[in-house]
Amino acid sequence: MSTMVDVRHLFVRFGDFTAVRDVSFTVEKGEIFGFLGANGAGKTTTIRVLCGLLLASEGRVFIDNEELIAGHESLIKSKVGYMSQHFTLYDDLSIRENMDFAASLRHMNHAEYLKNRRDLLDFIGFNEDLTKVVRDLPTGIKQEIALCVSLLHQPKIVFLDEPTAGVAPVARHRFWELIKKLVAQGKTIFVTTHYMDEAENCGRIALMRSGELIALDSPANLKQNTFHKQLYHLSPITTPVILPDRNLFDIWEPYGQNYHAVFKNDTDISIVRKHFNIQKISPSLEDVFIQLVEGQTR
C-alpha cells in the first residue's frame, strides 16, 4: 500500500492556545482510518488542516504525495472530499440542486457530473425523485446523499467528520456498509466518530487527547496493549450498591449501572464477589477509549 496522507510534526495554534501539538501519522491508500478523541481533543482542527480549510502553524502535510502549501490549497481540495460534523445538505434546496451546486463549485464537466451522480445514487440505492426538497428526507438518507455530494468529484480520500451523529442505528449501519463498499473500490476513508462500535470497523485508529496523538494502532492491538491484565465486568447484587475499596483495582470504571475493572491481584476477587457478580470479559474499544482518552485526564 502507498501513503495517501502523511502528517509530519503538525502544530496548530490559535493565539496562545495550541489545539494540535506535534502530531505525526500516515494513512495508507484504501484504508479506513479512525480519528478518535474527546471533544476538544483536536480532531476537527486536524481534519480542517488536512482538507485545506485551516493553515498549519508548523509542520508538513502531504495528501497523495502533494504537499499542502499555503495559497495552493486548491490542488489538495480537488483530491479530497469532506463531509462536515454539522452540515450535510442545504435543507431548502432539492437533492438535484444540492448536487448541481457542489458540482459547479468544483467546475465539473457536465457529462461527467451526470454520470457520477447516477453512479453514486445507484451506489446508495437511491431511486427516488431528485426534485425532493432535502428537509423532507429522513436523516439517514440525507447523510447518504451528503456522502454522494462529497464524492461527486471522485476524490481519492474522503474526510468524514462524525458523519453519523444523530442518525438512527439502522441507518448508521447502512452508512458504514457504504463506507466499506467505497474502500473496496479503492477510496481512502478518514473518519471521526464518537460511536465506538463504528470505530471497530476502522483498519487503524488514532487516539487524540488535548491536541496530542496518544495512540495509533489497529483496534485489536489497541485493546491488547492497553489491558495487560484480565478485565472484569462487575454487576452489583446488593441494593444499595456497596462499593469496594478502590485500592484493590488498577482500573475501576463505571459502565452504565455496572463496572469494568482490573484487579491489582486476582486473589482479591473473592472479597468483591460478596457484593458483585463478576465475569471475565475481553476489552472493547470503549474500554480502551475510556482508559486512554478519558481515564488519564481524570
Binding site: 482538507c51 480549510l53 469532506y82 463531509m83 462536515s84 454539522h86 452540515f87 457542489a102 468544483r106
Partner: peptide, 13 residues
C-alpha cells in the same frame, strides 16, 4: 452556524 461554510471552504471556492 449551520456548518455549511466548512463544506463551501472544502471546495476550491
Amino acid at each position: 452556524e449551520t456548518g455549511s461554510m466548512e463544506m463551501l471552504l472544502s471546495t476550491p471556492a
